[in-house]
Write a protein that binds this DNA or RNA. Structure first.
Lengths: 223, 223
DNA sequence: TATATTTTTCAAAAAATCTTCATATTTCCA
DNA sequence: TGGAAATATGAAGATTTTTTGAAAAATATA
C-alpha cells in the first residue's frame, strides 16, 4: 500500500512497527539513526516517515529539520509522555502528527492511514487554530494573540496552555496534568501546578476565567 | 458502559479497581494471573484490559505479548514507580497507556475514559451526559446545567450527585452512600449525609424532588 | 562568567468546603 | 393522638484546598 521509513535507535521498536505495518500491507524500510535516515531519503522516496524523537547523536527534531530541506514527506513523531509537548506542537511546518509512547500498533496504524488519506487530497496548508473572541491560539505557528497582540509565554506556559486547550471542555485532574504535561516522573511539589496555572492565567489576562478551578479535582479549560 | 478486564495477582487491587469502575457504570471481570487472563480473552471480548506488570509466573509484559498475538484490545499497564520505565516507553509498544502505582481511582478512570473515547468513537468526541428535562450533567466536563445555566456544586455535592445519578432508580442505603461516596474510613456524624443531601437538593433546586427520601433506608435518585 | 529568564519551592493568606451540633420538622405506629 | 424515631435545617467552627507573592534553584542567553 504505502512505503514507510521507520527511524528509531531501538531495534525492538522498529521490529514492532514493521510487523504491524507489513501486516497491513505496507512496505517498510528501517533506519537506526538520523544520519542513516537522511542518507536513505536521498536515494529513496517514501510515503511516510515515522521518526523517534529521542535518539543518540542526531535527535528527531534535528533529523526532521534536515530532512525538510529537501523533502516534504509526511512525518510522524514518536515521543514519550510529557516530553517536549510544546516543541512538537510548535515545530514549524515540520511535523504532520505525533504519537505518544506508549502507544498501541493500532493507534499508530490509524494515524498513518489518516495521513495517507489526507495527503492524497489537496494540500491543506491551514494552520490548526483555536479561537475564542479575541483570543487566538495558533498551534502550528506557536503564537498566542489577544486582540491581535502577541502574547509572550514561557515554554511551560505554552505546554500547559496547549495541553489544556487541546483537551478543553474536559475536567482534567491535577495528576493527569502533571503526568501529561510534566511527564510521569515528576516528583515535585504539589504547588507547582498551581503556580503555573497562576502564571498562565496572568499571561492570558482577560481570559483567565477560561481556566476553571475544579476544587478537589483539577482544572478545566472552557470549551 | 464498557467491559473491562482487570488482571492483577493482588485481590485488593482488583477490588479497588473494580469498585470504582463499577461505580462509573462499567462491567468488570477479574483475572488473578496472566494465564487466566489469556484464557478469559479467548472466550470473551473486552473494551479495555488493565494489566499489572508485576505478577508471579507470567508477568504483565509476557501476558501482553501473548494477548497481542490474537487481540488488539487496548491495554493499560499498572507499574510501580520507577519500575520498568524503559520497557514501558520502549519495547512494549503494544500497550496504550500506563498508570503508576500508587494511583488514584480517578486517575485510572480518566485514562480508561480517554482510551475508550479515542478507540471506540474516533470521530465522536461527544461527552458522556445525563439529561432529564432541562437538567443536564456532563460527566466529562464535570458541569451541571439547569435550563442551560451552569450550576455551582461543591466537590462533595458533585460526587454525591454523580454517584446517585450513576445508580439512579436504585434504593441506596445511607451506609452504602457513606462508604461509596465518602470512603470506607468515614467515621463521621450521622447527620453529615443529610446535610449534604440538603445542600445538593438546594443546588439542583427545581429538581430536588428527584432525590427521594426513603425513610429508614436512605435515598433514591429517580430514574 | 555574568545576566536574564524560567521553573520550582515554600509558607502565609484567602477561599471554599465539610462536619458537627442543636433545634425543627416530619413520619410512623402503638 | 402522643411520642419516639428518623430526617431536615441553619449556623458556626474546623478543615481542606487553592491562591498568591517572594525567593531560591535551575536553565538559558549574552
Amino acid at each position: 500500500m504505502a512505503k514507510i521509513l521507520i527511524v528509531d535507535d531501538e531495534e525492538k521498536i522498529r521490529e514492532f512497527v514493521k510487523k504491524y505495518a507489513v501486516f497491513e500491507g505496507h512496505n517498510v524500510v528501517e533506519a537506526s539513526n538520523g544520519m542513516e535516515a537522511i542518507d536513505i531519503c536521498k536515494k529513496e522516496k517514501f510515503d511516510i516517515i515515522v521518526l523517534d524523537i529521542m535518539m543518540p547523536e542526531l535527535d528527531g527534531f534535528s533529523t526532521c529539520k534536515e530532512l525538510r530541506k529537501s523533502i516534504d514527506t509526511p512525518i510522524i513523531m514518536l515521543s514519550a509522555r510529557g516530553e517536549e509537548y510544546d516543541k512538537i506542537h510548535g515545530f514549524e511546518i515540520g511535523i504532520d502528527d505525533y504519537v505518544v509512547k506508549p502507544f498501541s500498533p493500532k493507534e499508530l496504524m490509524m494515524r498513518i492511514d489518516a495521513i495517507l488519506k489526507r495527503t492524497q487530497k489537496v494540500a491543506n496548508t491551514q494552520n490548526e487554530v483555536f479561537e475564542k473572541d479575541t483570543l487566538k491560539i495558533d498551534f502550528t505557528a506557536r503564537i498566542v494573540t489577544i486582540d491581535g497582540k502577541k502574547i509572550d509565554l514561557s515554554p511551560k506556559e505554552y505546554d500547559l496552555l496547549f495541553y489544556m486547550v487541546k483537551n478543553r471542555g474536559i475536567a482534567l485532574t491535577r495528576e493527569k496534568l502533571l503526568t501529561d504535561v510534566w511527564g510521569y516522573d515528576f516528583f515535585g511539589d504539589d504547588r507547582t501546578l498551581d503556580t503555573h496555572i497562576k502564571l498562565l492565567r496572568k499571561s492570558i489576562a482577560p481570559y483567565n476565567n477560561l481556566i476553571v478551578t475544579l476544587r478537589g479535582v483539577g482544572y478545566r479549560f472552557e470549551a
